[in-house]
Simulated scan of single mutants.
Amino acid sequence: MELDVFAEKHRPDWDRLEHLVRRRRKLSGPEVDELVELYQKVSTHLSVVRSSGEDPALVGWLSGLVARARAAITGAHTPAWRDFTRFFTHTFPAVVYRLRWWWIGATAGSLAFATALAVWVINDPQVMASIAAPEQIRLLVEHEFANYYVENPGASFAAQVWTNNAWVAAQAIVFGAFLGLPVIYVLALNSANLGLSAGIMIAHGKGDVFFGLILPHGLLELTAVFVAAGVGLKLGWTIIAPGHRPRLRALGEEARPAIAVALGLILVLFISGLIEGLVTGWVHTTWLRIGIGVVAEVLFLAYIFTLGRKAYLEGETGDIEERPAVLPVSG
């Protein structure tokens, strides 16, 4: 073999591989594919050159190049910031959009139940009397309801409500694995608290105070809880009616995106917690408080129905891309 001719012929491939290895942190998808292909090709070239035994210096240089290419391939990973960005621009909004009818249904049902309770309390004094003693209700209406939002420092209160709401949302999703029944209980409990408080405040002429303090943070906060509940209900229904898929496979395919929703809602509830801790009790202009809440809610819905819809139509499912295609079986 004419080693000089061989080297001259394949030198462009070697130089290209070296260039790609130097730029390994900035490679595009096609360039990564090219890197792998050239690594395999140059590995073959190294074997040929080594077998000739004619040029130890060239063997050493090619060995180093192949080793660096192997390290670039085996150590290659998508930068964390790209994963983070893709999660919030594709994965999370796409899953929430795909399950929109579940959480829209949970929203409608919960608000209908809360409204019915509020109307019942307003129109039936006996119901209010059974809730608490008159003195306790007077304290709630005149002091406790409004003071709840300012009795603690804003930052610590925001952290407190954030962790509490994140726990409620996580419960709503996890409880879906129990056929969705506990999810309905969580929704009913939260709706009952909302409806009874609204009924008591409105019956005592404090409806403006109630809505002025609930709407700023409650729009986004309740939407997040309803999204979690919708995901949990879908998870429970998947166990009941998996369709053409094996039940465990169907559960896995829905549970993985559900985890993505739980992670995304942590940020959504962090924002609502900031509003509740720093705006609800501390911004004294009612229209400004409510306006901040409305803007946050509109932005979230626009985010889901624009970015989420786009990602969903592009085929984003929220599932783990690197999951094994099949499960190992015996025999």
Results as ranks from 00 to 15, higher is better:
residue 326 V to Q: 11
residue 301 L to Y: 00
residue 193 N to A: 07
residue 60 G to C: 02
residue 57 A to E: 15
residue 198 A to W: 05
residue 143 H to W: 09
residue 144 E to S: 12
residue 216 P to W: 11
residue 139 L to F: 15
residue 180 G to D: 11
residue 193 N to Y: 14
residue 265 L to Q: 05
residue 85 T to R: 13
residue 61 W to H: 11
residue 251 L to M: 14
residue 179 L to R: 13
residue 269 L to E: 03
residue 160 Q to F: 11
residue 252 G to S: 10
residue 34 E to I: 04
residue 328 P to Y: 14
residue 83 D to I: 08
residue 25 R to S: 12
residue 328 P to D: 11
residue 146 A to D: 09
residue 28 S to V: 01
residue 249 R to V: 15
residue 25 R to W: 12
residue 247 R to E: 09
residue 128 M to E: 15
residue 273 G to H: 10
residue 182 P to I: 02
residue 157 F to H: 07
residue 175 F to W: 14
residue 143 H to R: 07
residue 104 I to Y: 10
residue 3 L to Y: 12
residue 216 P to T: 02
residue 39 Y to D: 06
residue 176 G to Y: 10
residue 145 F to M: 03
residue 33 D to K: 15
residue 308 G to T: 05
residue 309 R to A: 13
residue 290 I to F: 07
residue 65 L to F: 10
residue 74 T to V: 14
residue 40 Q to W: 02
residue 330 S to W: 06
residue 196 L to W: 05
residue 255 A to N: 03
residue 281 G to S: 05
residue 267 L to G: 05
residue 118 A to F: 09
residue 2 E to G: 09
residue 256 R to T: 12
residue 197 S to C: 04
residue 218 G to S: 09
residue 124 D to V: 05
residue 320 I to W: 09
residue 151 E to T: 06
residue 264 G to T: 02
residue 64 G to E: 15
residue 120 W to T: 00
residue 13 D to E: 13
residue 73 I to G: 08
residue 321 E to I: 13
residue 270 F to N: 00
residue 220 L to A: 05
residue 121 V to C: 03
residue 226 F to N: 08
residue 271 I to D: 01
residue 57 A to N: 07
residue 281 G to H: 07
residue 248 L to P: 00
residue 266 I to W: 10
residue 267 L to A: 13
residue 43 S to Y: 13
residue 74 T to E: 14
residue 298 V to H: 05
residue 120 W to P: 00
residue 292 I to L: 11
residue 259 I to Y: 12
residue 89 T to Q: 10
residue 207 G to T: 04
residue 241 A to H: 08
residue 286 T to P: 13
residue 314 E to Q: 15
residue 23 R to C: 06
residue 307 L to T: 02
residue 278 L to T: 04
residue 317 T to F: 00
residue 9 K to Y: 00
residue 113 F to T: 01
residue 138 R to H: 14
residue 239 I to Q: 05
residue 22 R to K: 13
residue 18 E to L: 07
residue 307 L to H: 11
residue 107 T to I: 05
residue 221 E to T: 10
residue 182 P to C: 08
residue 17 L to H: 08
residue 319 D to N: 13
residue 155 A to V: 11
residue 46 L to S: 02
residue 141 V to C: 07
residue 179 L to T: 04
residue 294 V to W: 15
residue 190 N to H: 10
residue 187 L to K: 04
residue 140 L to G: 00
residue 283 V to G: 07
residue 240 I to W: 00
